[in-house]
Nucleic acid binder design. Structure first.
Lengths: 355, 355
DNA sequence: ACCATCATGGTAACCGCTTGCTATGGTTGA
DNA sequence: TCAACCATAGCAAGCGGTTACCATGATGGT
């Protein structure tokens, strides 16, 4: 940044121009104290005339809090995070808040750092988006940040991730990972599938854990035996979906359907199927999770679980500015199935192989 | 935001804890002034012990500039903006800068407001991403913001948009819209196409204007007559691509290829073709622009112009912190064609119709 | 006519950090 | 031994708002 200490117009300039004190100008700008109509008009006029824009840092310093909320995602480009970020940004804009965004790249350590950075900025709230690591040390450190943040008058809001623990000053908004997975696996089951491969999700990442749990519950409820060999844990990415399914197909896949743990993984699964010359859904049914745009771009269109991501983001933004003792500090938004063309009845029992 | 004036640990606390003055603590934290090794160690220790995080607002106020850069995009979810934002965010993180992101939703007025908001935050730089409106009043107002920003010690950087005018304190990084369009149209021409429909792009949006110009230049260079009926201006969206091509097909399309002004439009074009039962590229060749992930997800894979979006973002972030008189304040990054499967030789001269 | 009350506006003490300038003890050179 | 320097550290004046508290003139009740 250039070092020049720019001049810039200050409150005092406006005060001088309108012949009042800085206190008065501050008051008309904040609108939280009675000011005579005529005075207010003079000030407003001066502001416009001088093109004055208030120094947000000075205000934040004086008020002990910035009109800013922070959001930390894994990746700005990933549509899962993108839609949530959009919701947060839009609601924040409506509320007159600016939005600091940072990407953790999936690193727990980085995430912790980012929370501190956001603390430094005295963000009114910091939103942690997406699944979280199931890791003792991490939880402890994050819990400590949560307390510090609350102490400083900020809010920690968890968006789409489980609570940090009892009695911690956090609020959260999430969606039913387990339920959605239960529903979509049930759908597969209802269509007659009994051997379903589960592909995706980083080990110990809450999102994955819950989805897998829902999947498992559906199988149990339908009396389908659990088979560890059918679950493949790794990443929430197309690349992982592709290499995994390619490998499975190379070895011979004893399944008639695959539950891709998110839509990105499904993209990879489609690619692998295409490479191997096996047809979706004729030879293999596929379902995803999230319902991001790619689900409708794939052919056949992907059946998946729809999550109201933008709404999730909006609520998270809201939680940043509600008082601590709000009754509905923790809420859950629903998911629903969207059935498209990637599932059919299983063809016949056989081992699927590339080629 | 809760109104509680959080306690929080201050520089003074750290100073007390380590038995030095606040000046000294500030100095070890800034590392821009000699401090004895032992002293430094004591302070560092106290910082760690207390879990102190500096108040960024206070620092910004004292320094007259925040360690923050602002980026305004049209839409956070759109991958064109997403990749640029990712580049900005990553480079900013490397440089120790926080990143304020805001979405203009394509509104010029909103964009102007957002620049003011970023000015208020004393962002070291504000990055305006993507095409800009060719509108007199808008340019004037933005030029005024550019001056004010420079005056306050900030930088206005234009990313992927043309300069605001002569002598204005802005720097820019962009890519060759015209050249990329020229190249891809040339490719279509080389494959034998002579009737090419151009679909997409908001009227008077610079990105669109330049792409269309490149397209036109290629046609001229190949001696193909210009036909106004072949260009359809509207939006950079799949919806626009779809409705436009659907309508054209309904009326009977006298063309063998379509140049979708960006990949999103191409998605819509594919959909319309699919609806109409016409095959890409057999019946109709299609090309796009940007090379976002959807280009490889489409079937057939889309031939398009690759733009180094993330690199563009990184450079933009860098321009935020370089001194005004830097020699390379305006740079251009290259684009290149990526040829996939959406183009073939034209089948025969005939009118394409739905059904 | 007189004092309480109200509506406005001003004064000035912060908010937490930076930094120009000054102070101090220790070296060093003559 | 003494002056001239260094290397460090502290002092205190900001940076640009906010707001508790006080001042003032107008209004109104009796």
């Amino acid at each position: 940044m250039p070092s020049s200490r720019g001049s810039g117009i200050t409150l005092a300039d406006v005060a001088a121009a309108s012949g009042v004190s800085t206190a008065t100008v501050s008051r008309v700008l904040s609108g939280n104290y009675p000011v005579a109509t005529r005075t207010k008009a003079r000030v407003t006029e001066a502001v416009a005339e001088l093109g004055y824009v208030m120094n947000a840092n000075a205000r934040a310093l004086a008020r002990s809090r910035a009109a800013t909320i922070g959001i930390v995602v894994q990746d700005v480009v990933d549509p899962f995070f993108g839609y949530i970020a959009r919701g947060v940004e839009r609601r924040a804009a409506e509320l007159g808040l600016a939005c600091l965004i940072m990407a953790s790249q999936g690193s727990k350590e980085r995430e912790l750092e980012l929370v501190d950075l956001l603390r430094a900025h005295r963000a009114g709230g910091v939103i942690l988006v997406g699944g979280s690591a199931d890791d003792r040390g991490y939880r402890t450190k994050m819990a400590q940040r949560a307390r510090a943040l609350a102490d400083e008058g900020g809010n920690l809001v968890l968006c789409g991730r489980p609570p940090l623990g009892e009695g911690l000053p956090t609020r959260s908004v999430s969606y039913d990972n387990e339920g959605g997975a239960f529903a979509i696996t049930s759908h597969l089951l209802a269509r007659g599938h009994r051997r379903i491969a589960y592909v995706g999700g980083p080990h110990r990442l809450s999102t994955h854990t819950f989805r897998l749990a829902g999947h498992r519950r559906a199988l149990e409820q339908h009396g389908v035996a659990w088979d560890d060999d059918l679950v493949h844990v790794g990443q929430f990415s197309a690349a992982f979906g592709r290499t995994t399914l390619t490998e499975l197909l190379r070895r011979g896949l004893d399944a008639t359907a695959v539950f891709a743990a998110n839509d990105a993984v499904a993209v990879g699964v489609y690619e692998a199927a295409e490479d191997a010359g096996i047809s979706v859904p004729h030879d293999l049914s596929v379902v995803g999770y999230d319902d991001v745009p790619v689900a409708t771009q794939l052919r056949p269109r992907l059946s998946t679980v729809s999550v109201p991501l933008e709404e999730l983001g909006r609520r998270a933004a809201e939680l940043c500015i509600t008082e601590s003792d709000a009754p509905d500090a923790d809420s859950i938004v629903g998911t629903h199935l969207v059935l498209r063309d990637s599932v059919s009845a299983p063809r016949e029992a056989r081992i699927l192989r590339a080629g």
